[in-house]
Design a protein around this nucleic acid. Structure first.
Lengths: 176, 176
DNA sequence: TGAACATACCTCGACACCGAGGTACTACGT
DNA sequence: ACGTAGTACCTCGGTGTCGAGGTATGTTCA
C-alpha cells in the first residue's frame, strides 16, 4: 500500500521525501500514520530496485533535499501494479482506495474497467461477517446492536460502491 | 486486530486453534486471509503473556487439539482493549469493525457509548483524501472519476455510520 | 540568549507478518 | 493400494513496520 502510493505520487511529479510524506499523510494518514521510519526505508527499497532515482538539491530552508524521480522501470512498475493488483488491493478497502487514487495513471480505459470489474466481482460475492454454524446471519436477526451496526454499515457502503462501479463502468465502456 | 479477535472469540467459549481459525476467517478472512503461520505464533504470544491457557484434548478425527481458554487476566485484557482502544482501532475501518464485533463484551453501556463517541468524533473531523495545496478537494470538483468515486463512497459510508452511531448512542444513553 | 518549532534526513532494534514447508492422522472414493 | 482432501499443529527465514532516538539548519517569539 505504501509503495503503491509512493509510486503513484511520483508518477505525477518528482518530490523530495519530506514533501512526499506530507502527501502520503494527507492520503492515508487519517487511517494510519506514515512514520518516517517506515517511509525512508521504503524509499531505499524502491531505489535499490531501480524504480526511482534520487538527486541531491540544496534545501529550501534547512537540510539538503533528496529529490526522488521515477525511472522508466518505476513508471512501468506502477502501471503494472495498477493493472494487475494483488488480491489484497481489491479486498482491503484501504488499499483499494489507494489504488483508485492512482488508477487514472493506467493509460487504457479498458484496463481501468477490468480493475473495477475485479472489485465488482468481489463485492458481489455473498459475504457476511457473522455465522451461526455455516449459516450467515442477517442484520435483522442480530440481537447484538454493534454487530447489527457492522452489517448495516457494510451494506450501505456496498450499495453505494456498487452503484458507483456500475455507472463508472458504463461510461468507461462507452469510451471504447 | 488479530489478537483482539482471538480474545473476543475466546471470551465467549474455549476453542481449539483450528476452530478459532475458521471463525477468524469468517470474520476477517474476506478482507485479508488468516494464515496459520500468523495465527499460531499469535496464540503463543498470548499464552506467554498469561492471557490464555491451553489444554490438550484427543482430536475428534485427527491430531490432538489444543483447547484454548481465556484466563482471568485474558478476560480483563479484552475488556481493557475494548474500553481503551488504540487510535488505529478507531480510525482503521477493518479494525473498528473487529472492535464492534466484540464490543458487547464490555459490561457497562456507558463505556460502550464512550467508545462509539470516540468513533463519532473521528468521523466528524473534517477530512478529505485529496488536496490542492492545503485546500481539500470536494467530489464535485474532481475531474478524475476514480478519485471522485473514493470521495463518493467515503461520504456514503460516513453518513450511514453517523446515522447508526447517533441512534445507537441515543438508545445506549436511554438505558443509563 | 534561548527555547520552541519546522525542515529534512537517517539508523537501530524489537517484533509482527506470512509463504513455504513439515508432521501425523482419518476418511473417502476408485 | 493409492491419491486426495480434511483435521490439527508446528517451525523457519525473509521482510516490512515503527517507536525511539540522532543529526543538522533555519525561523519565530519572548
Amino acid at each position: 500500500m505504501l509503495e503503491l502510493a509512493i509510486l503513484g505520487f511520483l508518477y505525477d511529479t518528482p518530490l523530495h521525501g519530506y514533501e512526499l510524506r506530507k502527501r502520503l499523510t494527507a492520503l492515508i494518514g487519517h487511517v494510519r500514520p506514515v512514520p518516517e521510519s517506515t517511509l525512508y526505508p521504503a524509499i531505499k527499497r524502491l531505489e535499490k530496485a531501480g524504480l526511482l532515482a534520487r538527486e541531491t538539491q540544496p534545501g529550501a530552508t534547512a537540510a539538503p533535499r533528496q529529490v526522488l524521480t521515477l525511472t522508466g522501470p518505476g513508471r512501468a512498475q506502477l502501471r503494472d501494479r495498477l493493472a494487475s493488483p494483488e488480491r489484497a488491493d481489491i479486498t482491503d478497502e484501504n488499499r483499494w482506495f489507494v489504488l483508485l487514487a492512482f488508477l487514472r495513471h493506467l493509460p487504457d480505459p479498458s484496463a481501468q474497467a477490468d480493475v473495477l470489474r475485479r472489485r465488482l466481482v468481489f463485492l458481489e460475492e455473498p459475504a457476511s461477517f457473522f455465522y451461526e454454524g455455516d449459516r450467515p446471519l442477517r442484520a435483522e436477526e442480530m440481537e447484538d446492536p454493534f454487530r447489527r451496526g457492522v452489517l448495516t454499515i457494510a451494506r450501505a457502503t456496498g450499495e453505494a460502491e456498487l452503484g458507483w462501479l456500475r455507472t463508472t463502468l458504463e461510461s468507461l465502456d462507452g469510451h471504447v
